[in-house]
Amino acid sequence: MGAAVATPWTARARRFEENVATREPAWVKGVLITIALAFFGLFLLLPLMTVFAEAFRKGWQVYFAALVEPDALSAIALTLLVAAIAVPLNLVFGVAAAWAIAKFDFRGKQLLTTLIDLPFSVSPVIAGLMFVLLFGMQGWFGPWLMAHDVKIIFAVPGLVLATIFVTFPFVARELIPLMEAQGREEEEAAIVLGASGWQTFWRVTLPNVKWGLLYGVILCNARAMGEFGAVSVVSGHIRGRTNTLPLQVEILYNEYNFAAAFAVASLLALLALLTLVIKSLVEWRGRQPLNAGEESQGVPA
């Protein structure tokens, strides 16, 4: 697919190669490629392959038995549930925040931009602890929640909150530079032509950023499913009830159940690989209109 169309990258590479002034000696190129590939193999590919090798060491039966075990199934269901709540919420917030920051001027804009990044700089463990301090029984709202029989930490709402916190910046971070680069002209034109704010958003802003948005959502989802630190603090580790996939991996590993631990881990690794494939598809599809003119048939993935 990609090979059929000459992308700007390959064209530029060819121009570099043909020009004596910018061409590197063959050995420099060779050494650089070797270093990069060796590093990639040693630090990325090898560990990833170990996960799958360990998972299948005792054969297919053990592998599938580990995945359909009730605790593992409930961990899968819980992980999907948490992601299904956290990702759409972050999607709405991310679009709103990016739109506000990129298209409007207001007091405190700089502050908001900085604050959005906060979850990236705060350790996930601290993020989890914050929720314990807020909603724990000894925390600020704990006694009130207890009196009204509302469970937040050590239950699904706490897991969702912690996940939302750590995945907060993904969508907004992806959209802000994109929207800022696109400027306000198209929206201004739409308004001048009589479109309402809502129409402008749906028909002009959103189509312009849809690939960036999808990319942000994919990254957000990957992190939401893989998060360990923050959810570990608020989970309470009740088997079959508040263990997400990464927590289930830890438990199985600690029970000397290595094949099952790696089987569940391979599920997460598979998810990561799938995310990468979708991401590449999205990037490729996002670049298409430059060459192929009109974006048309079908949504990728």
């Binding site: 909603f135 724990g136 029984m137 000894q138 925390g139 704990g142 207890m146 930490i153 050590f154 309470g236």
Partner: peptide
């Protein structure tokens, strides 16, 4: 600690 913090 978790029980004190509300793990039921």
């Amino acid at each position: 600690r978790s029980v004190i913090d509300g793990l039921e």
